[in-house]
Design a protein around this nucleic acid. Structure first.
Lengths: 217, 217
DNA sequence: TTCTTTTCGTGGTTATAACAACATACTTTT
DNA sequence: AAAAGTATGTTGTTATAACCACGAAAAGAA
């Protein structure tokens, strides 16, 4: 395992590569690889470990009984996933996790992360701070999606999403990480209806776009 | 301050009243009271402290620019609120917090909670575990709301919500904590449209209800 | 109690999104 | 480069929810 690289990830920020190595042993960390299109977790599964994405990309989805996709979030390298379920033992997952590309995942035992040796290993404190920050961050991500999708019209949802994205990237012209279908799933609207509305918005002079490059006017 | 009572709340579970008292001093805890209808926090405010609700009830809302209410969650006695923002300094709130009744709140400095004396005070470890659990729990709450509102029709949203509630309360006949308006806000639909759909669903033999008592058939 | 205010259900109208079907453009594979 | 597959935009139709207005019922205050 590449401690050097792993110690650069958010969860280990402020922790040296050597300490990271020790922690990973202590947490019983196990690496696992997947192929593009693999399913890492299905709704209903019991989650025992938090995942840390080492390479590739994942998508957190929720499917209803009629097959509608609902994208909750995307996971990029260095981010945690399923950490909330791992922190609350015996709670079945509400979501699916899918590999968007080939990827490698490190599974961590959050129980150990919290309970063990707070006196012995001083860096445990830093680790817990980081975990706490990650959970809080995820919280805001979810809230953000709720804010977008609570609007009633597609136009409002799009504007809400694009405004946030523009602020986050600090540009009026920016790329979004979604295809049309993904953007529609994220905003909980129908793809072709989204295309239609985007076209209207461009004609109305609100936005300009090509593919996944958007500009707010 | 009533340490006896406070130590019974989730955040202090596993911590004695005496230890709770010490922790509260250490965290620079301050109690504040509000009247029904007061606003505790507005979107855009910088949040420095997590709130612990001692008495009364709160509502976490998000309002769009056109005045639509969007209920993110309700806070009951013993629960934390704004804890995610408190854990990530300098992030402005996306939400409003309103008092549904007269209430008392204890404000806690989460920074101290994490950074200080992990060796000196062994109960700090337990406290952090509890905070972590609370954040994870809130995460699942938000995910649940997303699951409900990602459905496209009112009927599906209602069924999703009622099914979850039935499972949670382990009864087929149960009370919900919402008025019609609140239920509509939570599911992001229009009140009268919700009333209409509920009526249809009863006629179709799916559910039975009176006021906020519901039964799944 | 009576009066006031709020909540809830109903009907009708209109705006809007879902859905289906198809054409075009863009990717990927062979 | 050709072919297959995928993504995107367009159109028209239909279902559905938002919106508005109103009356009844319930809750709260005087």
């Amino acid at each position: 395992m590449d401690y050097q690289k792993i110690s650069k990830m958010g969860l280990f920020s402020g922790i040296t590569p050597e300490e990271t190595g020790k922690i990973l042993q202590c947490l019983n960390a196990k690496e696992k690889t997947y192929r593009k299109g693999d399913c890492l977790c299905r709704a209903g599964d019991l989650v025992e470990h938090a995942g840390l994405l080492l390479t590739g990309a994942l998508e957190i989805r929720q499917n209803d009984l009629w097959g509608n996709q609902n994208i909750l979030s995307q996971v990029e390298v260095g981010e945690l996933f399923l950490e909330a379920y791992a922190c609350i033992p015996k709670t079945p997952s509400m979501v699916d996790v899918w590999a968007l590309s080939d990827c490698a995942v490190l599974y961590l035992d959050t129980g150990h992360m919290i309970q063990s040796c707070p006196t012995a290993c001083s860096f445990h404190t830093k680790l817990i701070q980081n975990l706490l920050g990650a959970l809080a961050e995820k919280n805001l991500q979810l809230t953000k999606k709720i804010v977008h999708t609570s609007f009633k019209t597609i136009r409002e949802r799009v504007l809400s999403y694009l405004s946030f994205e523009a602020v986050r990237q600090k540009k009026r012209k920016f790329l979004i990480p979604f295809s049309r279908q993904q953007m529609a799933d994220y905003l909980s609207v129908e793809r072709s209806a989204l295309s239609k509305e985007l076209g209207k918005m461009q004609r109305d002079g609100l936005i300009r776009y090509q593919k996944n490059m958007f500009e707010i006017l």
